[in-house]
Amino acid sequence: MSAQTTSMRDALYEAPGPKTRRRILIGTVIAGILVCLLVFLVVRQFYVTGQLSPKYWSFFTRPTTWRFLWDGFLGTLKVAAVAGAISLVLGLVLMLCRTSHLKALNVPARIVIEFFRGVPSLLLVYFFFLVVPQYGIKMSSFWMITLPVGLAASGVLAEVFRAGVNAVPKGQVEAAMSLGMRPSKITFKIVLPQAIRFVIPSLISQFVVVVKDTTVAYVVSYPDLLQNARVLISNYDALVSTYFVIAVIYIIVNYLINRAAVTVSRRTGVKIIK
């Protein structure tokens, strides 16, 4: 997101003068030294406690370890993709109801959106894991994780879509009205196509949240990346090294998603609305 932060900094602060530049340099050097020191202390502590010993790391040279993690990674992707698709469709529907002039639609939509936005996804997972089966509804562990993650995200996406709709200039609607277009046509032909274009980068970066939410899959024992990592940990008794590796994987995946958002936003000239 470097391009965005640079432009944001340019927008917020004036260009530094000679004194400020020196102060920035000094601050940067001191901060750099402190960070190096911190890293050194952490690594040293790991060394002292034996976390760096080969027994905790050698199993990462075995292909089976990686195949197992790969399976988990695919599980994560599958849950994230399906939950993402659910949240896109449901978010759009919720937003349309929320912006409807009919009280019968917009009041329930508002409640549902606030509910999904407000309730932690872990609680929703517990609901599908513990409560739903009591009513005799049988669900696979895949759906027990995918549904709640998708529902939680749909509340947020409804608001993202709404921000996009609000960003469409009023004149666009007035021009369409003056041509004699009916409200539904105006929504689907004029407003939504522009609104969606505005929010595509925000939707992509929201996908990061979905990916992170999938990690609660361990609650329902669905074999996602984190769940498989936990299996590795209990097999090899290697907590720090395993968590370290999968943290790096999550960071890379989410970094790539964010890069995609920035690329799309730059290509379409659209700002990321949050």
């Binding site: 200039p169 004149g171 666009q172 007035e174 021009a175 369409a176 003056s178 004029i190 196509p193 522009q194």
Partner: peptide, 13 residues
């Protein structure tokens, strides 16, 4: 009835 606006309001997309 035709209407022409100050800010044109052409459909941007």
């Amino acid at each position: 009835l035709g209407m022409v606006f100050q800010s044109f309001n052409l459909f941007a997309h």
